[in-house]
Design a protein around this nucleic acid. Structure first.
Length: 418
DNA sequence: TCTGGGGTCCTAGGACCC
DNA sequence: TCTGGGGTCCTAGGACCC
């Protein structure tokens, strides 16, 4: 038996934990650059504010109804997530953290009749200890636990917990749209609906051969999972990343090469920091720059190139230098660039590096990088770095409504007055 | 004025090998 | 007249997830 625990309106809920006066008020959290809506409280959903819509399209509605707007505060959400996940993994024999706000649990230790009371207890515990409300769904496969979770969240009678049993399975699938199934995205939903496969139950009854032909083994696995045959195991120790990326949209388009250079430097440095944090090194660096996809007045430009390093490294200096070299190759003058990114590929564990004949022994820069990482951990990201980091540079993203980092920054810790 | 960021997996097709 | 069979590796593109 699998459970999926999902935090309700996670980012919006995190904002509320430290600002209780926001409870019952509509809240919207925006993506980087304050661009799109990425989280909504239930009051904001009720106003018809959609997920992922560009904020400017709902600005008027938001203003009219006094919606509270926040820039995304990943320092806060990441820390709150860790608190929730710790409780969850301590509560079940097996667990897999699936995303910042979701966790699968393996529940083979529970008998069918214990399932629901156990879930209700867990839900209460998380609520009490962190202030975050979760919904819990269970089923015989991960996909079914996802289906159950939706019902737990949406159906008033479920009150946050829903257990799929052999008895209620078909009813549960019948009230789930095919596009709401885990693993069925927009394209496939459209294709399936065109074939009159509209609910999860319709999909349950689809012909294996046809599914395989149209959707490959991925689609077939999803159907099997709906039927109760597990195809996805719990992955307790997710494997190391294969790629790591840092990319950002600029607050405003720029054709100023120095600005783009600065941006690339800081993204490369951030990406390098990420892989060092995972005890990894990279062998290939890719840099890309592009114009605004939404601006139809200028010709779209997307330029990218990659380059192998002489030997794998996690050293910011080498990675930044390589990234800047690639930028020189792809740069075209006079284009309004809006987004840039640095991608690190062919990651491998740092300890496994086999030094090549030509490695420079002095290239062992770990002590320096360790010192940098240490300082930044203690004094905050960006406290120390390469070159001149211009904190208020024009390319830097917009975050006009950022809440304090209540749990990760000394200066932002809430003050209690007695 | 204004539209995010970071990943994974699978497949098809081409180059190349014997 | 007429041109094999079997395999690997790499890449780009397309689907998906949050």
């Amino acid at each position: 038996m699998f459970a999926l625990v999902d935090c309700n309106n996670f980012y919006a809920s995190c904002e509320r934990v430290f600002e209780p006066h926001l409870v019952d008020r509509p809240i919207v959290v925006l993506s980087n650059n304050d661009g799109c809506v990425v989280a909504r409280s239930k009051e904001a959903k009720a106003l018809g504010i959609g997920m992922g819509v560009p904020f400017f399209q709902v600005r008027d509605i938001a203003k009219q109804h006094g919606v509270v707007i926040r820039s995304s505060n990943y320092a806060l959400y990441g820390d709150m997530s860790e608190r929730v996940m710790e409780i969850l993994s301590d509560s079940a024999p097996d667990s897999e953290i699936y995303s910042i706000d979701e966790c699968f649990l393996g529940l083979k230790h529970l008998s069918p009749e214990d399932l629901e009371p156990w879930c209700r207890d867990l839900r209460q515990k998380v609520q009490r200890w962190t202030g975050i409300t979760v919904s819990i769904g269970t089923g015989e496969t991960k996909t079914l636990s996802k289906v159950a979770n939706r019902i737990a969240k949406q159906a008033p009678y479920a009150d946050g917990v829903f257990i799929i049993t052999p008895k209620n399975l078909k009813a549960a699938l019948a009230i789930t749209s095919v596009g709401d199934i885990w693993g069925v995205g927009r394209q496939w939903a459209k294709m399936l609906e065109g074939r009159d496969i509209k609910s999860a139950l319709d999909f349950f009854h689809a012909q294996d051969g046809w599914v395989k032909q149209r959707m490959g083994v991925v689609g077939l696995r999803t159907v099997y999972e709906l039927r109760g045959t597990p195809c996805h195991d719990l992955d307790a120790a997710p494997s190391a990343k294969q790629t790591t990326c840092c990319s950002r949209t600029f607050a405003k388009a720029t054709s100023n090469k120095d600005h783009v250079k600065e941006a690339i430097m800081s993204y490369a440095e951030r990406a390098a920091e990420k892989i060092r944090n995972a005890d990894q090194v990279c062998r290939i660096i890719k840099v890309s720059i592009r114009t605004d996809r939404h601006d139809h007045n200028t010709a779209p430009v997307y330029r990218s190139a990659h380059e192998p390093l002489m030997f794998p490294t996690g050293d910011s200096r080498i990675i930044v230098a390589a990234a800047l070299k690639i930028l020189e190759r792809i740069w075209l003058d006079g284009r309004p660039y809006r987004k840039a990114g640095v991608l690190l590929l062919e990651l491998s564990p740092k300890d496994n590096i086999i030094p090549s004949l030509f490695d420079d022994p002095s290239s062992d820069s770990n002590p320096l990088m360790e010192a940098i990482d240490h300082v930044n951990k203690r004094f905050g990201r960006g406290a120390i770095g390469l070159g001149l980091s211009k904190k208020n540079a024009k390319w830097r993203m917009r975050q006009e409504r950022l809440s304090p980092r209540y749990t990760t920054r000394w200066a932002d810790i809430p003050i209690v007055r007695m």
